[in-house]
Simulated scan of single mutants.
Amino acid sequence: MFDGDDLDAAERRVDEWQAGLERRAAEARDLASRLTGLTASAASRDKLITVTVNATGVTALELAEGIRQRPAAQTAAAIVETMRAARARLATLVTECTEETVGADSETGRAVLGAYAARDV
C-alpha cells in the first residue's frame, strides 16, 4: 500500500502544513497586537482642531481657544472633516501593518482591511 518513502513524504507534507499554520497564526497575533495600540491624529487646516482616533473611535478632541471666534456650525463641520482625516490616516497605518505582517492579499489581511473599510465614516 505505502512504502517507507511515501510515508516519509506524507510526514514532511504534514510537518510543512503544520509549520505554515503556526507561522500564519504567529503573524495574525503580531498583527492583532500592533493594531491594538494603533492611533492616528489629524489637525484642521487652521490648526484649531486636533482629533485622535483608534480602532474603536475618537480618543481625543482638542480645541484651541481661537475656535470660539467661529460659528458653531463651522466648528462642527471642521471637527467632522478632521475626524475623517484622522480615520483615513488610521486606515493607512492599518494597511501598512497588515502588509508587513500577514500580507494585504492574504485571507486574514483582506478580512482586517475590509473590517476597517466598513467602519469608515
Rank of each mutant, 00 (worst) to 15 (best):
D30F: 06
L38H: 04
E81K: 01
A28P: 04
L48N: 02
D15H: 13
R29F: 02
R119C: 06
F2L: 14
A10I: 06
E100G: 08
A76Q: 13
A19W: 10
A77L: 10
G109P: 03
D3T: 15
V51W: 02
S33R: 15
R13L: 13
A117E: 10
D15V: 11
A25I: 05
A115C: 02
R12M: 07
V14Q: 14
D5I: 09
T95F: 12
A9D: 12
A55D: 05
A40T: 02
A77T: 10
L61A: 03
V14C: 05
L35H: 11
A64W: 01
L90H: 00
A42M: 09
D105S: 10
R45Q: 14
P71K: 11
D30I: 02
T36R: 10
R70S: 10
M83D: 04
Q18H: 12
L90K: 01
V102A: 00
T98R: 03
L61W: 06
D105E: 15
R29I: 08
R110E: 05
G20T: 06
V121F: 03
E11Q: 10
R45S: 14
D105H: 12
I49R: 06
V14P: 03
D6A: 14
T56Y: 07
R87W: 07
A88T: 04
V121A: 08
L21W: 13
D8E: 15
Q74N: 08
L61M: 09
T101G: 00
R29K: 13
T75A: 15
E99R: 14
A28N: 08
L63W: 03
V80E: 03
D105R: 13
A28M: 12
E65L: 05
D30G: 06
R84V: 01
S41H: 08
T36L: 07
A32K: 02
G37S: 10
A42C: 06
A115E: 09
D15A: 15
G20E: 09
L63M: 09
L61N: 00
S33Y: 04
K47C: 11
T39E: 04
R23W: 07
G57D: 03
V51R: 03
A26F: 11
R84M: 02
S41T: 15
F2K: 12
V53L: 10
L21C: 11
A43N: 11
A104I: 05
A42D: 14
V94Y: 00
R68D: 08
G109L: 00
R87Q: 11
A77E: 14
